[in-house]
Amino acid sequence: MENLIEIRDLSKTFRVRQGGLFDRHTVLTPAVRDVDIDIRRGEILGCVGGSGSGKSTLGRMILRLIEADDGTITYAGRDLRALPPEDLRQHRRRAQIVFQDPLQSLNPRRTVDENVARPLLNFGIRPAAAARRVDELLEMVGLDPRQSHRYPHEFSGGQCQRIAIARALALEPEFLFLDEPVSALDVSIQAQILNLLKRLQVELGLTYLFVSHDLKIVRQFCDRTMVMYRGKLLETGSSEAVYRDPLHPFTQDFLGTVLHARRDEAWQRAAERAEDLEGAPPDMAGDHCPYAATCTRRVARCTTAEPLLRPAAPGRAVACFLHESPADVPSPQPRTLTPTGATA
């Protein structure tokens, strides 16, 4: 499968001004650091990681809602970061976003049809044609077009998310960035929305970048999974392989906390390690693995150099010295690598 999006060395650092009148200083918060990832046409790429791991920032950079600092994003062969304004406008037709909070992502003072018609009107479609298209879109996401004169707050969360999906699809995009689209919904509604997204993906041939902190959903829903931690991409691979056999110690801890409901002491410690995302940053200067401070399998190199993302098995890559080459592995691992079925 060809790559729709190729991301190389993508970085973004937020500058936050702090302090009062006399003691002003700028705090640099790296959100995404040197991420390399390809998104293939027609796949669902899941992106997991705790809060603050840069998942949303990554997606917003693909949509150019946030400007990257460094690196390249190639979208269908074109350098996204160098698009002139008119081309950026056209890019908006091809890549769209669905937000976490469905109610907030719709303008509360505009009716549903006004909300959904806005992208159409932006691209010069006449109001009458836009109105017909709005009805079509609402039917496509399973809503009654006769209700479209109502305001978003009159709909439930799941219905609002359907409206938001209809709006995102209005311009017939090929790529959707789904920013935790079901996190704010009830479990029963989650399944409905996921089924809808899956059906639309197949029918319309869409490509998804699906961000979530709900690992179970990513496992079921996504073809491939990428794992992020503190802005670094730690591991990629087919969802099946990553979940069955996580390579990076962080992934192991992270998956262990959520997927294995063991209530023993080891589980507790792993949970604490994986949850400690915004806790004290590792007290290390210079290059080091982002997970080195809490990793239980840390080796000497982890605190002095930063591991790069290296292929570990067919279709998989991991940024960890333990998997860099057999010679670097300090102790034999109890687990075995299972490369079968690792290609997406």
Partner: peptide
Amino acid sequence: DQAYVEAARAMATP
């Protein structure tokens, strides 16, 4: 800072 404004940007609203 509301999401609907970001959505408006994403759909190329001037």
